[in-house]
Design a protein around this nucleic acid. Structure first.
Lengths: 136, 136
DNA sequence: ATTATTTTTGAAATCGTTACAAAATTACAA
DNA sequence: TTGTAATTTTGTAACGATTTCAAAAATAAT
């Protein structure tokens, strides 16, 4: 998805585009590295010296409520965020720790036993060894 | 999977079958409710008054390392455990909070972009409204 | 301008989890 | 058995991610 005007995009999703919110969202779409709160906070603190970590928490929670970010719980200890809200999977390499995106064909998922359930969110997490770490 | 003798099963998986470990694993296979550490602890405390919560943590971590339980991170705040380690999905109802199992056909998952990755674990989490909560 | 509303901030509290050392239990050898 | 070593359990303290909360700052409305 192409987002030309972040402030406009936030507004269209019912979010008042404050300076901090715009900057956090810009970080997400520029750095597609599924950051944690701490990663966002530390990256932006250099440019926004008054930034509070609570603001990052508040902002990402708001984004999640408005469904413009995906909450990734592939790690047991810290939550990660992704501005790409389309259905796709995440692969975590157990060796290098990196998180990879991969495509998922929704139609091919046959979900037994939950017919007539209303699905709002789909999370697909794989863990293993990535191609780089396998050869090295 | 049928597990007739829990102690034997633990031993076969490289786990010394102490009393606490046997009781924790028995709880898991009798109560297929994907319990949290706290749920296991509170349920067993009545029968094992000296039980420590740390023991439940240690035990479940050991089970996970030996791959006889599945770690479920569908909730952001607390980890849940499942003695069924076969590939299957979990549906969390956003209304009643219940966790449902569902079947997944592994072969039908076409994972784009991660060819030549070694997959060790597959986690599929859905969130939405279960059939009961939709009608009520 | 003034006032009301919203947002940000930072410190304190919360809570799941882990670290650690002592106590209890089990395994092993004499 | 008995003593000793190794393993497991226990409970308290520490840790760290996240939330709470109230004050300060910024923004919007009258």
């Amino acid at each position: 998805m192409e987002i030309e005007n972040v402030a406009e995009y936030l507004k269209n999703n019912g979010i008042k585009p404050s300076y901090q919110r715009v900057r956090v969202f810009e970080y997400l779409i520029k750095n597609k590295n599924h950051p944690s709160v701490n990663m966002v906070f530390k990256a932006l603190l250099g440019e926004i010296p008054t930034l509070s970590k609570t603001t990052v928490y508040n902002t990402l929670k708001l984004f999640a409520e408005k469904n413009i970010v995906m909450v990734i719980n592939i790690e047991d200890n810290e939550t990660r965020y992704d501005a790409d809200t389309s259905v796709h999977g995440h692969f975590k390499c157990e060796k290098c720790g990196e998180l990879f995106d991969f495509g998922v064909n929704e139609n091919e998922l046959n979900f037994d036993k939950i017919e007539n359930f209303q699905i709002n969110q789909t999370h697909i997490y794989l863990k293993g060894i990535c191609k780089n770490c396998k050869t090295n």
